[in-house]
Design a protein around this nucleic acid. Structure first.
Ligand code: FES
Ligand code: FES
Lengths: 134, 134
DNA sequence: AAATAATGATACCATACTGGTATCATTTGT
DNA sequence: ACAAATGATACCAGTATGGTATCATTATTT
């Protein structure tokens, strides 16, 4: 029932820090010092964030990461999906056999509606809103 | 990000079947035949449902399980909590250090509100509503 | 009373997932 | 050339999930 695993959590912390330092390039070394996350794990996380287009990386001496988009354009759901795959709360309870018609199953409708609701709410959270504090 | 694991799912299927057969006593043997769930796993699940007060069990020949309460009084959240523990979607992202004041943290507020929302919606689903189909 | 058919309790097990480590290659600034 | 950074990738330990197996207990039937 955990909505947010560790890597997503770390990712949000890290990206927040990087966002605050905009437009500076932030190295893993600095991040490790500031927010306490195991270094190799954080590296992997940042690489993902980079490959998903939320960060831009700079190799070589003086390199590091900076935000690829405006904070307002970085949705929490993007970060979640980068680590947890497409947003899907659950498959349905009775697949076939028991529910005669899937399109009319009220249980499925309810669960689906909850999923949309959660998604919509999470979608309203952006890096920008977190930084601004509302 | 999975809201409902296998045992909860199985539990709902089983309890639905038992509810439909009310007030008859249903044996594991019958359940296994009707809904396809591995027998020992199903037994464990029914034992939990029994110990949580949602089913009443009868030992000995001709024994089995029947619903302990009216279907309207069996909430989906009860079943979920029986298998998944207390309803808690996630701990907060930045515990201390980063968020200066936990009570004012907007991110936490949002996530908490999502959690309450989901809970309220799930709470509106009872065995009764599922059986009636709305 | 014995046999049988049911659940109760509980210990065990295989696999997958989560969280994390380690290593080497590549790029860039000095 | 060297140092400082990330890229890519393979590996690993611990835990959770999903499931099995076994024996004890209880109730019915004969
Ligand atoms: S629960 Fe999936 S179709 Fe009814
Ligand atoms: S996210 Fe937990 S206090 Fe801000």
């Amino acid at each position: 029932m955990k909505l947010i695993p560790r890597n997503t959590d770390y990712a949000v912390r890290a990206i927040c820090y990087i966002a605050k330092k905009r437009p500076a390039v932030v190295s893993v070394a600095e991040l490790v010092k500031k927010i306490k996350i195991p270094r190799p794990f954080l590296r992997k996380i940042l690489q993902t964030l980079n490959s998903e287009g939320m960060l831009i990386s700079y190799k070589g001496k003086g390199g590091g990461f900076r935000l690829a988009r405006k904070p307002e354009a970085v949705y929490l759901t993007d970060i979640m999906e980068a680590f947890q795959g497409p947003f899907k709360l659950n498959e349905c309870f009775f697949k076939r056999k028991i529910c005669p018609d899937r399109n009319k199953c009220c249980l499925k409708k309810k669960i689906d509606s909850i999923e949309r609701m959660v998604y919509r709410e999470l979608r309203s959270i952006t890096l920008g809103s977190v930084l601004r504090g509302h």
